[in-house]
Nucleic acid binder design. Structure first.
Length: 577
RNA sequence: GACUCCGUAGCUCAGCUGGAUAGAGCAACUGCCUUCUAAGCAGUAGGUCGCAGGUUCGAAUCCUGCCGGGGUCGCCA
């Protein structure tokens, strides 16, 4: 039950009955909560939008709509404001109905079939298989996973996907690094690593594994003899480490696609053929990059994708000077592969440093799908890791980057997930390792969870009064909930389905976190009223009817909290540690 | 130089894809625990939504041009 949808249905019927049939116009009709309470419960622009079509001035039109609206039993009053807004004041009963509905359907409240089971592919994490995940990876991981939860919640058929970059130079470097460890173990000579190699100690275990199986047979032979085995072993081992890291924050992908595999099945040739057929590629020469000097620049003709046709500032090379395919070529093939799997929409979650890459992939997708496939890239900005306000230094080069696992060990998986969604994805995020452990209202995780804790304590106390909150409670008398603080909570409850849908529409899971914060705040506020006026407490000794109604309200808050937290992948806390 | 994201209260940020008098939280000031609900709550103050144009009934939101900050810019992935 979504009261805003309900009102919108009424409005659409009215518009249609007046002969408005333009779908685009009908689509623009809104039924939304006004910012200010004095403007009622639902506000609509219907009269403003239809005035031209119906040849009438908006205020007059609004008057005639008003006559129709007031006939509805759920509508108490209708006011016309400003240039022609219609403000609708709903009867309390519709809100009480909404509450009953939540108690009835529990965690189904807010779920919908908005997505109509459409197939959506979300590619996220896709960290290079060269080592454990660091904290920078965590944001995209949590964002992508929560977005996947959110879209599932509103009825999409979601595939969670991971693209493994296991084909490039970095994997060769990884294999070489393991080989150095291999030699180190067998010969006891200290390992020395070049700049582009990986000195992390996590590779020692991989080398040992290889020794267990192959012994020292690779010790004094050429690279071509060992490279394949080492590559395979290393990437598998790294992917296992990454999967293990991800499992710590409950992230499990449905599908892992290997770049190497994409290449080996000849998909690049296929996509290049298709692009060629579509007139999207040509042999050409690029200008040297402006603004920065590059003495190694050498102009040469190469195979280029016409990404400038799709808004990019340069055409992009598909082949390197040595005639091998670029990363971009393989990625094009990968997106072609996704296209062939019949999704209606693709979402990629990338780090902000990949911003310049969007246009060309967008171009590829437009070219191969004839602009039919929906594509959205969500960029996640950097995470600034602090401790007590001071930045934690990290340097990946030296191998002492802050691993995601160490942060989880320190603050817990739930805190990590929650904090990652306390900012919009394209805003930088400050993450203070000390602050997130504080038990105070300055810590958003605590603030929201504390509302749960308080409700849970109500559950226990209610039992002493013979009320079991696990019972249905549907027959409680919601009419008794009429102080402004309770009404405030009820109105927030009514907004939940709308919030979920808006968050899904925008691919912005952070909105769920913000909503939860608002809901917690409304609850804390109403709870605290009991400090000054005992008659405003949730449990009133000599008034069981009122107590039941308030407890039912608390239960509803708990239900929605649980739903919201489940979307962001966090467990509700029932008591303080 | 080009592209891209961002610019909203002293600070950190929301703002429901164009709605009405722009909202929170910190910090500041003021209140609320002898008792069952203070890990919290209530209140005050704080704004030229970077600047200038444009689009329309209506702009923080869309378009254009500037200003400032981050990111990216062939043969890395």
């Amino acid at each position: 039950m979504n009261i805003f949808e309900y009102v919108k249905t009424i409005l659409l019927d009215i518009a249609k009955s007046r002969g408005v049939e333009d779908d685009i116009l009908l689509h623009k009709i809104t039924a939304e909560p006004p910012k200010e309470d004095i403007h009622g419960d639902v506000s609509t622009n219907i009269a403003l939008l239809c005035s031209k079509k119906l040849n009438s001035n908006p205020r007059q039109l609004a008057e005639s709509f008003k006559e129709l609206l007031v006939k509805n039993t759920y509508i108490d009053n209708v006011q016309i404001a400003g240039p022609g807004f219609i403000n609708i004041f709903l009867n309390k009963n519709i809100f009480y109905e909404c509450c009953k509905n939540v108690l009835n359907i529990k965690n189904e409240y807010g779920r919908s079939n908005y997505g109509k089971s459409e197939k959506v592919n979300i590619e996220y994490v896709s960290a290079n298989p060269t080592g454990p995940m660091h904290i920078g990876h965590a944001r995209g991981a949590v964002f992508g996973d929560s977005l996947a939860n959110l879209l599932q919640y509103v009825g999409y058929n979601v595939t969670r996907e991971y693209y493994i970059n296991d084909a490039g130079q970095q994997i060769i470097n990884l294999a070489k690094s393991v080989y150095i460890r291999y030699i180190e173990i067998l010969t006891k000579k200290e390992a020395v690593f070049d700049d582009d190699l990986y000195p992390g100690e996590y590779l020692i275990a991989v080398a040992k594994e290889i020794i267990d199986i192959y012994g020292d047979r690779f010790l004094s032979c050429d690279e071509q003899n060992w490279i394949k085995v080492f590559k395979e072993f290393s990437t598998n081992a790294m992917m296992n480490i990454i999967k293990e890291d991800l499992s710590l924050i409950n992230i499990y992908h449905d599908n892992f696609v290997s770049e190497e595999h994409i290449k080996s099945i000849g998909l690049i040739d296929k996509v290049v053929k298709l692009l060629n057929k579509n007139g999207s590629i040509y042999e050409g020469v690029l200008d040297p990059p402006k603004g920065q000097k590059n003495e190694n620049w050498e102009s040469r003709p190469q195979l280029l994708f016409k990404s400038t046709l799709f808004g990019d500032d340069l055409d992009r090379p598909l082949k390197k000077a040595d005639n091998t395919w670029t990363y971009f070529a393989a990625d094009s093939a990968y997106h072609y592969d996704k296209f062939k799997r019949n999704y209606t929409s693709l979402i990629n979650v990338w780090g902000a440093d990949h911003g310049g890459y969007i246009k060309r992939i967008e171009g590829i997708i437009k070219s191969i799908s004839n602009s039919k496939l929906k594509f959205d890239v969500k960029l996640c900005q950097l995470v600034n890791l602090n401790k007590d306000g001071k930045p934690v230094k990290m340097s990946k080069r030296a191998g002492n980057f802050i691993s995601m696992k160490s942060v989880i060990d320190s603050v817990g998986a739930d805190v990590l997930r929650f904090i990652m969604l306390t900012r919009k994805n394209d805003a930088p995020l400050d993450f203070d390792l000390a602050k997130v452990k504080e038990q105070s209202k300055d810590n958003p995780v605590f603030y929201v969870q504390y509302a749960n804790v308080r409700i849970n304590s109500l559950y226990k106390k209610a039992q002493n009064h013979g009320i079991n909150l696990n019972d249905e409670l549907i027959n409680v008398n919601f009419d008794l909930l009429n102080n402004s603080s309770e009404i405030n909570i009820i109105k927030l409850i009514a907004k939940w389905p709308r919030q979920v849908e808006a968050a899904a529409k925008a691919n912005e899971p952070h909105r769920i976190t913000f909503y939860l914060n608002d809901l917690a705040s409304a609850f804390h506020s109403s709870w605290s009223l009991g400090n000054e006026d005992p008659s405003l407490r949730y449990i009133i000794d000599n008034n069981m009817d009122l107590s039941k109604a308030r407890l039912a309200l608390a239960k509803i808050v708990k239900i929605i909290m649980a739903s919201g937290l489940s979307i962001i992948g966090v467990e509700p806390v029932d008591k303080l540690s």
